[in-house]
Write a protein that binds this DNA or RNA. Structure first.
Lengths: 237, 237
DNA sequence: TCTTGTTGTAATCGAATGATTACTTATCAG
DNA sequence: CTGATAAGTAATCATTCGATTACAACAAGA
């Protein structure tokens, strides 16, 4: 028997919905990434307890048993997705800091609010805030972290969430050089942003003037980006 | 047959573990409150999807079917608990505002940070922050709200969470008189506090100097209260 | 070509969970 | 006292979900 199209049985229609024809084989390492990416989106949307391994599998275009076998347990999958999101956030901040210190951000510097001061920490704070808002686009990174933050009751997740949060605080304080109060305020703004995203406030942006004011006041220049990302997300689901 | 101790059957031992002897009957309205209180604690700890109606029932000292029958569905129960928490937060803020405007807070006024200004909005902001931190003691009110904020994907919960959050914003802006930016900062500090509670940072207060610094910096005078509440919570579970 | 390891799935299992049903038993008005 | 109503539970059902097992197909090297 030849090796063409393993699943096509009766009719000539190529499978049910998705065009999966020959079911391409993908090396495990690459498949891992794809699953983690899918898992990030699912967990970000529905939380740890609210997500199923089957939803992740579907989102990754793969069978549920494979997801479980590759990661062992749903918890292990969540933890890996969490580490990945955590790493991406740290990287984003470190990129900003490195670029700033290399003098590569001359263009953006002019757009910053001079009222907040132009010493390194104050400027980095604003630049990192921009980088943070940019991450909203990156499907669920921020909400993945947020979901971990409220899953503190799960021992393994809670421990990782605590460590991760402190990592971020230390980065902002030590690498960007913000004093504790400024670092705290920076994190607070981030948590507010996460919350606004979590309750899907951008969804009612046009229908509620209070929502409009709060979003504009919180996101400033990044609002259009976030609105677009929210819209895209809505259609995807 | 007399009406003494309905459940005691064979031995003279009074039931299994809990001393439930005669199983007191409680009017529905009062039972409702007890269940809502229990539900708030459970939902606050484990989130909507992560909680079971049986956990709520156990926490309320009642059977699972009764919980379901009284509220219809788990979702309806969550929504009622959410409304209750939301109402308590609004009340707490309004109490502060009313007391301030009635001149009943002369004592506390002296303890405020004069650097933040002594106009009404600035002082109210500080007083409300204290009231907010006080709510940590009130078993799960704040985390109940937080759990609703990250459950935005559930249509009914998301809608209520959006409206509730905007209510709070409007209260802070219109009734306390904070300008949008100050109201935003106030909410942001609140979301940071919720997050620190969510990841149970107080649990590692003694073991991590970064956690210590961040908690002290965020909670200030209210830290001892929160630490005590966290400790109590840990033992309760 | 054979064979061996990798990629992947179908089938299914057991536990958990929200909900329903049918049934008790206390309480209270008359 | 006596119904009648309200308060409450035991038993159970249908799903859902994470996990396991057994198996299929493909690729690559010998």
């Amino acid at each position: 028997m030849s090796s063409v199209a393993k699943k096509i049985v009766g009719t000539d229609a190529p499978e049910s919905p998705a065009i999966q024809a020959t079911a391409e084989r993908i090396p495990a390492a690459r498949r891992r990434e794809l699953i983690l990416e899918a898992a990030t989106g699912v967990f970000a949307e529905r939380g740890y307890a609210g997500s199923t391994t089957d939803q992740v599998a579907k989102a990754a275009g793969i069978s549920q048993p494979y997801v479980v076998r590759m990661f062992g347990t749903k918890e292990a999958l969540f933890l890996e997705a969490l580490d990945r999101a955590h790493g991406k956030l740290l990287s984003a901040f470190r990129s900003v800091i490195a670029a700033y210190d290399a003098g590569e951000l001359a263009e953006q510097l002019g757009q910053l609010d001079p009222d907040q001061g132009n010493a390194r920490p104050q400027q980095l704070k604003q630049l990192m805030a921009i980088a943070y808002a940019d991450l909203v686009e990156d499907r669920g990174i921020l909400m993945m972290l947020m979901q971990a933050f409220v899953a503190g009751h799960e021992p393994a997740i809670g421990a990782r969430a605590r460590e991760g949060f402190l990592d971020i605080y230390r980065l902002v304080r030590d690498e960007a050089g913000l004093p504790p109060e400024a670092a705290r305020d920076f994190l607070a703004q981030g948590m507010l942003m996460n919350t606004l995203i979590g309750i899907r406030l951008p969804d009612i942006y046009q229908q509620d003037s209070t929502a409009e004011e709060l979003l504009e006041c919180t996101l400033r220049a990044k609002l259009p980006l976030v609105l677009k990302a929210s819209q895209a997300q809505r259609q995807a689901v």
